[in-house]
Simulated scan of single mutants.
Amino acid sequence: MSPKFPTCVRNHRPGPGDVWHINEVVVKIAGGSYWRWRAVSQYGIVFEEILQSRRYKHAAKRLPIKLINRWGFIPKRIIAD
């Protein structure tokens, strides 16, 4: 594999998109309930996933701000389920 290959792939991936979806799902793992927060673009790119043992709403509210700072892009819409 050429050393240029990862750089080429990284440069040709789609951008974050104008619409972001943030989901909250309760997941059972080993008999315990966990909350999974996930941020996805309109193109299906998963930005971030957070798994918490308790529902910590403050961390979920920080998630879009963290993503905006990381990607340097403000979406037109953020849809929260």
Rank of each mutant, 00 (worst) to 15 (best):
residue 1 M to T: 10
residue 1 M to I: 04
residue 2 S to M: 02
residue 3 P to K: 10
residue 4 K to C: 09
residue 5 F to L: 15
residue 6 P to W: 02
residue 6 P to Y: 00
residue 9 V to A: 10
residue 9 V to T: 07
residue 9 V to D: 02
residue 9 V to R: 08
residue 11 N to W: 02
residue 13 R to T: 03
residue 13 R to E: 03
residue 15 G to K: 01
residue 15 G to Q: 14
residue 17 G to S: 07
residue 17 G to E: 05
residue 20 W to P: 02
residue 23 N to K: 06
residue 23 N to W: 00
residue 24 E to Y: 00
residue 24 E to S: 13
residue 24 E to H: 14
residue 24 E to G: 15
residue 25 V to E: 13
residue 25 V to G: 04
residue 27 V to C: 13
residue 27 V to R: 14
residue 27 V to D: 05
residue 28 K to G: 01
residue 28 K to V: 11
residue 28 K to T: 04
residue 29 I to E: 09
residue 31 G to D: 00
residue 32 G to F: 04
residue 34 Y to G: 09
residue 34 Y to D: 01
residue 34 Y to C: 14
residue 35 W to V: 14
residue 37 W to V: 00
residue 38 R to S: 08
residue 39 A to L: 14
residue 40 V to W: 09
residue 42 Q to V: 13
residue 45 I to V: 13
residue 45 I to C: 12
residue 46 V to C: 13
residue 49 E to V: 15
residue 49 E to T: 15
residue 50 I to F: 03
residue 50 I to E: 10
residue 50 I to M: 12
residue 51 L to W: 07
residue 52 Q to H: 11
residue 53 S to R: 11
residue 54 R to W: 01
residue 55 R to Y: 00
residue 55 R to P: 11
residue 55 R to V: 05
residue 55 R to K: 14
residue 56 Y to P: 04
residue 56 Y to F: 04
residue 56 Y to T: 12
residue 57 K to F: 05
residue 58 H to M: 03
residue 59 A to F: 10
residue 60 A to N: 02
residue 60 A to S: 04
residue 60 A to V: 05
residue 61 K to I: 08
residue 61 K to H: 11
residue 64 P to K: 02
residue 64 P to I: 15
residue 66 K to C: 01
residue 68 I to M: 12
residue 70 R to N: 05
residue 70 R to V: 07
residue 71 W to I: 07
residue 72 G to W: 06
residue 72 G to E: 00
residue 72 G to F: 07
residue 72 G to Y: 02
residue 72 G to I: 03
residue 73 F to T: 12
residue 74 I to S: 06
residue 75 P to A: 02
residue 77 R to K: 15
residue 77 R to C: 09
residue 77 R to W: 11
residue 77 R to A: 07
residue 79 I to Y: 02
residue 80 A to F: 09
residue 81 D to K: 04
residue 81 D to V: 01
